Computed example of a mutant assay.
Amino acid sequence: MTTPSKKTLLFDLDGTLVDSFPGIRTSFLHTLQEKEWEIPSEDRISQVPGPPMEWTLQDLGMTAEQAQDALKTYLDHYGLVGWDLSEEFPGMRDLLIRLKKDGFRLCTATSKGEFFAEKVLRKFDMFDLFDFMGAATDNGTRRSKSAVIKHVLESVGLEEPADILMIGDRSHDIEGSAEFGIDCVGVTWGYGNATEWSAARFTASTAEELERIIHDWA
């Protein structure tokens, strides 16, 4: 089966393709302990994946300067320990292979920094399945999901929102893609909640359901 015209799929990484929470949690707690900062509740910790880490640190009460300093500690620890604790969500690599065979253009649109995004994708043999890796800059202005999506659209030369579909698990994916008139599939195996997913045009609870939604959309 092939798509009637070239359709582009933008995939979030953390919470969509891979379960990165164990590593993010480990490095996040290490950072707070190193900075002698109060540890939040597990409910709050569960919401850490998704937005840029410095946003989360400031939300905990750090100043912008403190958050940038803590971000360095986080990235150092994540580079040594955290990134390698990720696991592929069941069926996602096989789904990417089928989608690519069916004629879809595959891109990532992740708030994860470029360096670690590539490391994680290569760990699970996903990197070469993507036509373009859209990620945040580790040190720069491209940090928000909307900024990452804009980067992908401009780099790949995508101009028609109706031919683009975002797949992600958090409100940042849904709201970020909506800024460009792009529909989103909210995947429920990630780190979001029902309130966040309710804003998405589609919702998928398994890789098989996601595949059906994508083909029906195309």
Score class of each variant (00 low, 15 high):
residue 87 E to P: 00
residue 108 T to V: 06
residue 170 R to W: 08
residue 133 M to E: 14
residue 126 M to Y: 02
residue 185 V to I: 14
residue 152 V to C: 03
residue 140 G to F: 03
residue 108 T to L: 08
residue 121 L to S: 02
residue 166 M to K: 00
residue 132 F to H: 15
residue 133 M to Q: 12
residue 155 S to E: 15
residue 89 F to S: 05
residue 140 G to Y: 03
residue 174 I to G: 01
residue 181 G to R: 01
residue 141 T to K: 13
residue 102 D to G: 10
residue 160 E to C: 12
residue 153 L to S: 03
residue 176 G to Y: 00
residue 150 K to P: 00
residue 105 R to Q: 14
residue 112 K to F: 07
residue 181 G to C: 08
residue 139 N to Q: 14
residue 184 C to R: 06
residue 136 A to L: 01
residue 166 M to N: 07
residue 148 V to D: 00
residue 86 S to I: 04
residue 155 S to A: 15
residue 140 G to W: 00
residue 111 S to K: 02
residue 185 V to D: 06
residue 119 K to E: 14
residue 111 S to C: 15
residue 101 K to L: 14
residue 126 M to R: 01
residue 178 A to H: 12
residue 96 L to N: 06
residue 94 D to N: 14
residue 138 D to H: 11
residue 107 C to Q: 02
residue 118 E to W: 05
residue 171 S to T: 13
residue 179 E to I: 12
residue 138 D to C: 10
residue 180 F to K: 07
residue 90 P to G: 07
residue 167 I to C: 08
residue 166 M to Y: 07
residue 96 L to S: 01
residue 106 L to M: 10
residue 95 L to S: 11
residue 171 S to K: 12
residue 124 F to S: 09
residue 97 I to V: 15
residue 185 V to W: 07
residue 93 R to F: 10
residue 109 A to E: 02
residue 110 T to Y: 07
residue 88 E to P: 10
residue 149 I to C: 01
residue 165 L to R: 02
residue 104 F to G: 07
residue 177 S to Q: 09
residue 124 F to E: 09
residue 110 T to G: 08
residue 116 F to G: 04
residue 145 K to F: 05
residue 123 K to Q: 15
residue 106 L to E: 09
residue 86 S to W: 04
residue 109 A to D: 05
residue 161 P to S: 08
residue 100 K to T: 09
residue 112 K to E: 09
residue 139 N to I: 14
residue 147 A to L: 13
residue 148 V to S: 06
residue 152 V to I: 00
residue 89 F to W: 10
residue 181 G to W: 05
residue 98 R to N: 15
residue 176 G to P: 02
residue 109 A to C: 10
residue 96 L to H: 05
residue 117 A to Q: 03
residue 185 V to G: 05
residue 122 R to F: 05
residue 171 S to G: 14
residue 124 F to G: 05
residue 119 K to F: 03
residue 105 R to I: 13
residue 168 G to N: 05
residue 139 N to V: 15
residue 134 G to K: 00
residue 125 D to L: 10
residue 147 A to C: 09
residue 116 F to Y: 13
residue 118 E to Y: 10
residue 122 R to Y: 10
